[in-house]
Design a protein around this nucleic acid. Sequence first.
DNA 1: TAATAAAATTGTAACCATTACAATTTTAAA
DNA 2: TTTAAAATTGTAATGGTTACAATTTTATTA
Lengths: 134, 134
Amino acid sequence: MHFTNDELIEYLRKNNIRPSNIRLKVLKYLLENRNHPTVEDIYHHIIHEIPTLSRTSIYNTVNLFKDRGIVNELSLNEKELRYDINTRLHGHFKCESCGNIYDFQVAENIGDGLKGFVVYKKDINFYGICINCQ
Amino acid sequence: MHFTNDELIEYLRKNNIRPSNIRLKVLKYLLENRNHPTVEDIYHHIIHEIPTLSRTSIYNTVNLFKDRGIVNELSLNEKELRYDINTRLHGHFKCESCGNIYDFQVAENIGDGLKGFVVYKKDINFYGICINCQ
DNA sequence: TAATAAAATTGTAACCATTACAATTTTAAA
DNA sequence: TTTAAAATTGTAATGGTTACAATTTTATTA
Ligand SMILES: [Mn+2]
Ligand SMILES: [Mn+2]
Ligand SMILES: [Zn+2]
Ligand SMILES: [Zn+2]
C-alpha cells in the first residue's frame, strides 16, 4: 500500500499532530508496512533518508503518536517496545522460534465481566511456536 | 488462607524445587496473599524474618518459580514486573487511578483462530479506571 | 565424624532501553 | 527582518534486572 504526502499530512492533522518531516516518514513507514517495529527498526529505516536523524526523535515521535492515540505500544516481554499503527482490537502472537509477530482476531466482548470498569486499553499477547516453525 | 510448612514443602517438591528457607517464605507469601507483588514487595515482606536477605535471592526465586511454571510473570506497563501464583487462564485489569490490579474471567476459547499454533502463554491485560474510582 | 562436592545465597558491577534535559536548529508568527 | 514557538539533537541520567564471582549452607561420601 502506498500513501501520498498529502494523505499522510491529512492523517496527522486529523489527529492534532503537526506534520514534520520525521513524523511523516515514521507514519509512512508504519502505514505501508503495518508491522510491529521497535524504535531501532524505525530508526534504521529512516536514517538513510535523514542522515542527521537522532534516535531521540524516533522516541519522541512514537510517544507523541501514542499520546494522540494513532499507535499502540506493544510490550511483548522483549527488551524493546514495539509500535502498531493498527489500533483496532486484536491480539498478538509472538513465535519464540522465528520471532515473528502475528495478529489474530479477538471477540469484541472479551472481558465483559468488568461491569462498571472503564477500559482504555486491551493488551492480548500470546506466546508459543507458530505454524511455520512446527 | 494458611499453609503449613509441610504443605509448602510438598508444593515445591511436586514441582521439582528444592525447599529452601527463602523459597518456602516466598511461596507462603504468594499463596496466602494471592496478590500480584513485585520483587520489591516480596523483599520487604520477608526481610523482617531473614535480615540477611538479598534482593538477588528474590529475583532468583521468582525466576526459578517461573521456569518451573508455578508463577506467571506479569508485565503491566509498569517499571517493575509482577508475579502471580494463580496460573490458570485469567485476565488482569490495572486501575490507572488507584493502582489496584483485578483478576477477571476470560473465555477458554479465546484466540481459537490460531489453528496450528502452539500457545505456551496467554497475557490478557486491560487498563483503565476501576469501579471504585469512578 | 570429617572431608568433599553440590547447591543456595549474597553483594557488587554491568547491562541497556528509555527518559530527562539543555543546546541547537528549524519553522511559524508578528 | 525580528521574535517566538516548536522540533530536533546529543549526552547524561535512570533504574529494574541480570551476570558473576565469592561466600555460606546443605547434602553426599568415605
Ligand atoms: Mn498488530
Ligand atoms: Mn492474577
Ligand atoms: Zn515461528
Ligand atoms: Zn481504582
